[in-house]
């Protein structure tokens, strides 16, 4: 079954923009972590995410067919063209907020990548196969840290609970479905995200219980990132930094 090229492009941008924007956020920690081992681990996570971005956006550019590269997509689009979920663009906050955000995203990726490995699109399946190894490690590490800090001292517990409450309203967007998702599901390229929620909730509930943290009751979801309808104010600043050289000195080789 053939799929509308523009819808496939939207799907690929959603994948690549998630990893691009979160990778950028994580890279902001470099040299400022609580302990040297965490500096190394965060740099490693950022590096994996940037590597996944190169694959997703590389394929997106190919599907787009306008002779652009992954770099063109990363550095020369404005905020409204980005398709990442809002969760990934939120500021780092303290180390606890960064690791909670990472866990909530990694848990989603771990469920999604498992399914994408069976995609009817060979390139998608191949990217997912490579990414899934990294994602498996990421979710193990971020879950362990969430548990360690949640079930640590009173202060670390309180900080993690506050991080969870701040971030939880951004979780629901990952499971939204629209015509792009419907088309991907119909073509067997990707699952409808809404079908991933039960598995995600089971994983998150188990880890948060072990972390002695309380899952907020509200299921209210902020959205607008993956459709591009309305990002947070934070994305523009991130792009201003990330894209500055390419914008200030257009057309250069680096």
């Amino acid at each position: 079954m053939t799929v509308d090229k523009n819808l496939l492009l939207q799907f690929l941008l959603r994948q690549g923009d998630n990893t691009l924007i979160l990778g950028h956020r994580v890279s902001e920690w470099c040299g400022h972590s609580p302990v040297l081992e965490e500096d190394i681990a965060l740099a490693n996570t950022a590096l994996d995410l940037i590597g996944q971005t190169q694959m997703w956006l590389g394929y997106a550019a190919e599907v787009q067919g306008e002779g652009k590269t992954a770099d063109d997509l990363a550095f020369l689009r404005d905020a409204w063209d980005f398709r990442n979920v809002l969760l990934t663009e939120l500021p780092n906050g303290d180390f606890g907020q960064t690791l909670m955000r990472q866990f909530l995203f990694d848990a989603f990726q771990s469920v999604l990548m498992g399914r994408l490995m069976g995609s009817t699109d060979e390139t998608v399946a191949a990217i997912a196969a490579k990414a899934s190894k990294e994602v498996a490690y990421h979710v193990e590490r971020s879950a362990d840290t969430v548990v360690g800090l949640g079930d640590g001292t009173e202060e670390s517990h309180n900080r993690m609970q506050a991080a969870l409450e701040y971030l939880w309203p951004y979780v629901g967007e990952m499971f939204e479905s629209d015509e792009t998702d419907a088309a991907m599901a119909a073509a067997g390229i990707a699952p409808d995200p809404s079908t991933l929620r039960a598995e995600y909730d089971a994983l998150v509930t188990r880890v948060l219980a072990e972390a002695t943290l309380t899952l907020p009751e509200s299921r209210y979801a902020h959205k607008g990132g993956r459709t591009g309808r309305m990002h947070t104010e934070h994305l523009g600043h991130l792009l201003a930094t990330m894209q500055w050289l390419q914008r200030a000195y257009p057309g250069c080789e680096w």
Binding site: V35, T145, T153, S156
Partner: peptide, 11 residues
């Protein structure tokens, strides 16, 4: 980062 190190140690 003190709270992080303390938290992980306590855990």
């Amino acid at each position: 980062g003190a709270w992080v190190r303390d938290g992980l140690l306590a855990h």
